[in-house]
Amino acid sequence: MGELIILRHGETEWSRARRHTGRTDLPLTERGEEQARSLKPVVGGRAFVRVLSSPAERARRTAELAGLTVDAVDPDLWEWDYGGYEGISSAEIREDRPGFYLWDDGVVPGDADHPGESVETVGSRVDAVLSRVRPLLDEGDVALVAHGHVLRVLTARWLGLEPKAGRLFALDTGTLSTLGTEHDRPVITAWNVPPSRG
């Protein structure tokens, strides 16, 4: 059985500032492009049966710079829609909502472009992704290029955990993680591996 290779896109201005970046499509910073290029030696030796990307340019550009050819853009790989918290950091939110924690408190509705969604809705989206890619793993490795929170929820669901368990899996920009099996049970085989410096 193949592995599910998950790449979080490289750094953007908002990820560097720790601002919630859901549906706002920001480009990679220079460092983000370097991170993406540094992933090439790690993924370059693998033959993927399928490469899926979030529709966001930052994810598609990361795939390109890492040397991957995206077979399909999957809207279910969009980042969590943060609603009224789009572009705002948790520290700023806590000024009005002391103790705010995204995984417990969720988001508030935003405008028409950012209506917001619950962690359970994100869980349903990644369940759909997993149902499509699991059969492909019989043929080999599959790569997903997307965002921090959606990939954390996807990992929780891969392991059979509730979507909120994504809180347990910190994930930096420009990193590679792998999900596989051991004795036919889902496991994490590598997590949050930084780009190669070589």
Rank of each mutant, 00 (worst) to 15 (best):
131 S>T: 11
7 L>I: 15
52 L>A: 12
174 G>F: 12
134 R>G: 02
3 E>K: 15
91 A>P: 02
66 A>R: 04
177 S>K: 12
62 T>G: 04
38 S>N: 14
102 L>P: 01
79 E>C: 07
92 E>M: 06
106 G>K: 06
190 A>P: 00
117 E>L: 09
3 E>S: 15
151 L>Q: 10
123 G>F: 12
137 L>F: 10
106 G>A: 10
58 R>T: 11
98 P>T: 07
107 V>D: 06
116 G>E: 12
193 V>I: 15
65 L>F: 09
77 L>A: 02
127 D>M: 06
65 L>N: 12
130 L>S: 05
54 S>V: 05
178 T>V: 14
166 G>Y: 08
143 A>R: 09
125 R>S: 04
2 G>Q: 08
12 T>E: 09
59 A>E: 02
33 E>A: 15
17 A>R: 15
13 E>V: 14
23 R>V: 01
187 V>Y: 03
15 S>G: 01
168 L>S: 14
137 L>I: 12
88 I>K: 13
118 S>Q: 09
142 V>L: 10
124 S>Y: 00
70 V>P: 01
9 H>Y: 13
193 V>Q: 15
82 Y>A: 07
120 E>Y: 03
198 G>I: 09
193 V>P: 00
19 R>E: 07
175 T>V: 15
153 V>A: 08
186 P>W: 06
38 S>D: 03
66 A>T: 07
7 L>E: 04
61 R>K: 15
138 D>S: 13
70 V>Q: 04
47 A>L: 07
154 L>W: 06
135 P>T: 10
6 I>K: 04
127 D>K: 14
70 V>K: 03
35 Q>M: 08
179 L>A: 10
28 L>N: 03
10 G>S: 10
